[in-house]
Simulated scan of single mutants.
Amino acid sequence: MNTKSSSITILKSTLFRGGGLEKYTRRIIQAFLDKNWKVTVLTTGKIPSDNEMQKGSPNLQIVTHKYLSPCSFLKVLEFDRFCRKYLENHPTDVVFGLDRNSFQTHIRAGNGVHASYLEKRKKSDSFLKRLSYRINPLHQILLHMEKRAFTHPLLQKIFTNSSMVKEEIIQFFQVDPSKIEVVHNAVEWSELQTPFTNWQEGKNLLAKQLQINPSLYQFIFIGHNYQRKGLDRFLEALAGLPRQNYHLTVVGKDKNIQKYKQYTENLGIKNQVTFVGEAKSLPFYQLADCIVIPSYYDPFANVTVEALAMGVYVVSSKTNGGHEILSETGGVVIDSLENLESIRLALETAMKYPKTTESALKIRNSVKDRDFSSQITFFTDACAL
């Protein structure tokens, strides 16, 4: 290892939530600690008393900032200012950003490109909502912040979780392509072995609990913010399929969930769709033949690789970067979200591949090399150069 780069500051405004990006951040921190780096983490909020990560390593320091502002856009500025001030007084050779900050030497752009996100949202948002992009201070701050970050003269390396995001960074900010490395999201492949092995038992149990027919083809949709995730288009396409052949379970929260329930009634598919709200994903992977990810913009939806690791067939939009890892037998890509026929054809293709012991194992093995244990060291090795 290059001893000059044996200390690192990691920037992540939220560290102890249960989200996928927070979990990924904690794994990256642990990977650096395992390589004997001295790690400082700049974050916000209270450090949990049961934080085993910090207890177990003398090389880890977590510095937390308490927000003064209640406004989301001011919090972004506040955290960035906190990080810059800290780094001025405590410089390290590597500054690894996993959030929205104006300066870092290395960035994992897990949130994608905000400018591209707004472009994609135009396809689903109302005229007034699109108009608000220009006056919403949060959007303007994030656009300014990412431009400073991606064009900073001290930036050495950008890690993206899809080629889609890499191309967006090149398109919007003219970044040298050699600065950008694509590292697709990893998954707890080994840890999922037991629930995968027991998927049939889990399927029957959950189907009984939800009072749905397990012999039907089981679609699932997992995600919060249904509009951005494309649930409306999915439901419209689903209504064009023979209703006696499938069931859809929608997992995740949305402030307008009642509107979507009413929409299924308007489409005539109320009895084919079950909304369960926020819930743990694992039992639904056991239930599912297919997960549908019709997102208008997702740098790389974690549910893509999680579903594959559970042997579930994937239908994905092109604007989910996760579609890049789909094998020919493991999934299909929706050609255009604007074209209902395109979505319907993808769903019909999926229904030709009901989950079996053999097909599930083949799909699961297609992402065997994406286990966290084999992927996470990429970051430590790249930062040591």
Rank of each mutant, 00 (worst) to 15 (best):
T357V: 15
Q30I: 05
L308C: 04
A109N: 11
A186R: 09
H90C: 03
D34G: 12
R17G: 15
I334S: 02
Q262V: 11
I212S: 13
V332C: 11
N101T: 10
A350R: 07
N136G: 05
V113Q: 06
N101D: 11
D371S: 12
K147V: 10
D176P: 05
T304M: 06
N51E: 05
Y285T: 00
Q54C: 05
R26M: 10
I220Q: 07
V314D: 00
N59L: 15
K23A: 11
F32Y: 11
L248H: 02
P283K: 05
F372K: 02
S57K: 02
F379I: 04
G321H: 02
E191Y: 04
I325H: 02
Y24A: 07
D298Q: 01
L33N: 04
N256F: 11
E119R: 13
H152D: 14
W189N: 02
G97T: 08
S49K: 14
L287P: 03
T274A: 03
S190F: 14
S366T: 07
V305T: 05
G223C: 07
L155I: 13
L155P: 05
V315H: 05
R27K: 13
A288C: 10
T319E: 11
I107S: 06
Q193Y: 12
R370P: 03
L192M: 13
G45Y: 09
Q244G: 08
L142P: 01
V273A: 09
K255D: 14
C83W: 01
G112S: 12
T40V: 14
C83G: 04
G19W: 03
D34A: 15
H90D: 03
H224N: 15
L340S: 08
I293C: 04
P242F: 03
G240N: 11
F172W: 12
G252E: 00
V94T: 13
V251N: 04
K46V: 10
L361D: 00
T319K: 03
L267I: 09
K362E: 15
E358T: 13
P214C: 08
V165T: 13
K129H: 01
G240S: 13
H152V: 03
I158Q: 09
D34I: 09
M145D: 07
Q211W: 09
S317Q: 01
S366M: 09
N266M: 12
T25I: 08
V63T: 10
F96Y: 11
L231S: 11
S215V: 13
V303T: 11
S215T: 15
Y260E: 07
N136S: 08
I212N: 08
Q211A: 14
H224L: 08
M145H: 03
K123Y: 08
V332H: 02
F379D: 00
L282G: 06
T377Y: 13
V165I: 14
K352R: 00
L385Q: 15
I158Y: 05
T357W: 05
I334H: 01
E181V: 12
R148A: 04
F32N: 00
G110N: 03
P294E: 13
V182K: 06
V367A: 05
F82M: 02
I141S: 06
D50H: 15
L385Y: 15
I220N: 03
Q200E: 09
R243Q: 14
K12D: 07
E201L: 14
T380D: 03
A301Y: 02
C383W: 02
S57W: 07
N51T: 00
N320G: 12
K352Y: 00
V39F: 09
T64Y: 08
A382Y: 10
N101C: 10
T249D: 10
P354V: 00
K352L: 01
